[in-house]
């Protein structure tokens, strides 16, 4: 990611009121994670799998603070169980920011499943999402996701793809 895209993500998170980020690092967001770690206004929590991160974000919601789950889109598959239980069972929302691995242009065979499964899984869970491929749209998209999730009390997702992450 370019530094300008990293900056746009962090601006969006801050404008949305996020103070805690749970993440499991990936390669497309490689530059984002240390920037989040270094930001004095954001507490980062490194997790062992994205499902654990989703549950921690749910707990943060209950505290009145705002959290984000940052991950590769493969982490969505690891998160389905807690997302279904928290979102559909209790109305506890998690806002996700994920890198779009496996979209057209992907040149790693192992990432193809991530692209094939991401949108059907989001649709199956009825999670609204926006794929953002223009740097100018990052900040407002993150703000929009929080506005929606804090009125729906349900999950939403932003997937960053295209030249934003490559």
């Amino acid at each position: 990611m370019k530094q300008s895209a990293v900056d746009a993500v962090i601006r969006g998170l801050k404008k949305a009121g996020v103070s805690i980020v749970c993440y499991l690092p990936d390669s497309l967001f490689k530059e984002l994670y240390p920037a989040l770690d270094a930001d004095p206004d954001i507490r980062t929590i490194r997790v062992t799998n994205e499902g654990e991160g989703a549950a921690i974000c749910g707990g943060v919601f209950l505290s009145g603070k705002r959290a984000a789950l940052v991950m590769e889109n493969s982490g969505l598959r690891a998160s389905v169980e807690p997302l279904a239980r928290m979102g559909l069972g209790a109305g506890i929302p998690v806002v996700m920011l994920m890198s779009y691995r496996g979209e057209l242009g992907e040149n790693n065979w192992w990432a193809i499943p991530h692209g094939i499964t991401m949108e059907p899984i989001l649709d199956a869970l009825r999670i609204p999402y926006r794929v953002v491929r223009e740097e100018d749209a990052i900040e407002q998209s993150i703000i929009d996701a929080y506005n929606w999730s804090y009125n729906a009390y349900y999950h939403s997702a932003i997937a960053l793809g295209g030249s934003v992450v490559r």
């Binding site: 805690i20 507490r43 929590i45 499902g51 654990e52 991160g53 549950a55 921690i56 974000c57 749910g58 707990g59 943060v60 919601f61 209950l62 505290s63 009145g64 603070k65 959290a67 169980e81 807690p82 239980r85 928290m86 069972g89 209790a90």
Partner: peptide, 18 residues
Amino acid sequence: QQQLGCVTPQAFGLAAGL
């Protein structure tokens, strides 16, 4: 809650927020 595997992570998130 009825959330196998979520309880202590949620409690930790709550603890981090408060």
